[in-house]
Structures are given as structure tokens and as C-alpha cells.
Nucleic acid binder design. Sequence first.
DNA 1: GGCAGTAATGAACCGCGGTTAACTGGCGAT
DNA 2: ATCGCCAGTTAACCGCGGTTCATTACTGCC
Lengths: 181, 181
Amino acid sequence: MLKQMMAERGRKVRLAAGEFVFHQGDGDESVYGVERGLLKAFYTQPDGREFIKSIVPAGAFIASLNALVGNGECTFSLAAIEDCELLALPYRELRGAASEDLEIARDLIGLLAELASRKERREYQLLCMSAEERYELFLEESGGNPDWLSQADLAAYLGITPQALSRIKRRRRERKQIRGS
Amino acid sequence: MLKQMMAERGRKVRLAAGEFVFHQGDGDESVYGVERGLLKAFYTQPDGREFIKSIVPAGAFIASLNALVGNGECTFSLAAIEDCELLALPYRELRGAASEDLEIARDLIGLLAELASRKERREYQLLCMSAEERYELFLEESGGNPDWLSQADLAAYLGITPQALSRIKRRRRERKQIRGS
DNA sequence: GGCAGTAATGAACCGCGGTTAACTGGCGAT
DNA sequence: ATCGCCAGTTAACCGCGGTTCATTACTGCC
């Protein structure tokens, strides 16, 4: 089983909030499983702007697919939002184990399908929904405005600036006022 | 090997330009391999607006991941842009074969990783790049403005309206004029 | 030729988000 | 208390994209 293999052969990684697992441009070919904590995977633009690709909670797996499939560089950075414990396993090992063990292969197939499915949802949101709709969806899915994410990070996740997010919140407040009066 | 299995056990599907493979909301759990032709995978909004998720060329594989992983509905429609020949195989069969054959499992893993990697690139473009930058990238990757895609479809792929695409093209023309003078 | 249908373009108006800058409130350090 | 720092908000200006409507160009059809 895959989780078991991660636990047995994986390298334990602990890091404090703010520390990086890998940086954009690195050649990190490991797959990481999050045991505890919270991370953000984000792109940094040449001009310094930051866009958060995904928030990575405990229980999730993450890797830079570009680094895995083509031995390329990581296209994004991975950093801890809270203190974290991870398990790291080189993808080569995982693939190697999957080529000898049908159980592990099955798990890896399920994992990759899950991953692609989540990416498909994110892709849909970015392509079809406005920033305000994405914000509303985020509120629903996370159950109210979370304390574990700064406005700057939330804005970067939505693909806008903190100022634009502030405006969206104000518009919603004002609309609710009108409804409530 | 996976391609071989598709060829042997897959159902041959022929369709003319404009015809649908499946509609958004269907429960189609097949994986499709494109033998010949060109298709578009697209979301249709309640108000009728259309967003193209991906252009699917010959040689590619496509399936609605939401339908595969959770037995859910297809989140998008798949339709032929040109006359097509496809091979269809239920994902259940593919997964079943992969759970008995390490070769097929390895191929399926590679396929899913490839798929996720491409989705990651698209996600990056939608999150970090402007519509104009996405247009320029499309031109580079397809080698000049293609005749096999209407302006309306190209706009839907970029996530904007045909009018906005027209404006982008005009802005580029005018900027080139200035450079060239 | 005349006609309708469609694709692409263009113009006018408006709302949203980026940019820049200023302002507010909370918090720790001294 | 004061200072500085940081997160969040607000405002003013501008450019881009959506919306609507009109125009142009091309095609097939009678």
C-alpha cells in the first residue's frame, strides 16, 4: 500500500512556518505527503508578484509534475504556512515500486487520477468564474472566512491583488446591507 | 501495452465535425484516444457562454476526470471540430487491466502524469497570465494564426469574448506599426 | 443579381481589477 | 508612551474586458 510505503521508505521533513520545501527553478523530483500542517504552492513572477496555485492541507500529496515527468525544473515554490511534518519520497522510487507491485501501482493510479481531477476543478474555476465567484466558492468550501490564511495569500489564491479582494468584500457588505434593510 | 489494448478492446467511434462525443452532465466514463481529427472540450454556462477547456489533437487522450474518479457527471462537453476517429474504452476496463498487468499499469501511470502535467501548465497560464499573453503563447505554440480554429473558439479557449480578442489583435497591430515605422 | 446567414470587426458605455499612494489599527520592542 | 512594522483598507486614476449594437465581408441559396 502506498501510504505504508511512504511511511517506511520516505524521508521525514519537518519545517517551521515560512520555510520552503523547494523553490521555483529547483529540480526536486520528490513526492511529498503532508502528515501535519499546511502549505502553499505558488508561482513567483519576474516582477515579484505571487500567485498561489493551491493550498495543501494535511493528508494531501504534492509534487511539481513538470519536475517529475520530464526531469524539468519545479515550476512553482512550496512553502509552509504553518509548522509542518512531511514525508518525502523520490518519484523514481515510487514509480519503480509501482512497476513491481500491482497494489502500489493501483494506489498510484488512484492518486494521480485524484490529483488530475482536482486540477480540473481548479482549471474550471479559473477559466469560467470571476474573482468574486471564486471568493464566494472559497468561503463556502472553507466554511466562512478562515483565520489560517492572510488576505494577501487569499488574494494570491484568487489571482487578484489584496486591494481588489478588499473591494470585493466591501461590495458584498454593501449589497448585504441593502438586502437587510 | 496501453495503445495496443485500446486498439484491440476499444470501441471505434467516427464522427463528423460538430458532432458530440458526450455532453456536459452525461455520465460517460470512457477514456477516448484520438486517432484522427481534432476536438474541443468545453464548458457551457447556464447563460449560454462557452469556455474551451482544451483543444484535443490526434494522438491525445481525453476523459472527464470527474466522471472517472467519483462516478460523477461529465463537467464538460466534448465535440468534434473536424471529422474524427476515436477509440473508446471504459475506464473501469482500463483500471481493471492495470490491476492485473504491470505493463499497462506503468503506461496508465505515465499517461495520467502526463495529463496532470498538461493541466498544471494550463492552470499556470490561467492563473498568472493575461488574456493577451495567453494569446501570444498560443500563437507561438501553434505557429502563427491557425486556420483550423475560428476566432470564436480561440476566444473561448483564451477565456474572453470574440470582441475582446479582436481588440487584442488590433492593439498588437498598432503596436507593430509603431515599432515598424 | 438579390437575399439571408454567419464570422469578424468596430464603436460606445460601464464595471472590475491593477497601480500607486495614503491611511488605519494592532502588536512587539525599546 | 513612543516608535516602527505589518496587515488590511480606502481612494484616485487608468486600462482591459463584458455588453450591446452596428457594420463589413464572405458564403451559400434561390
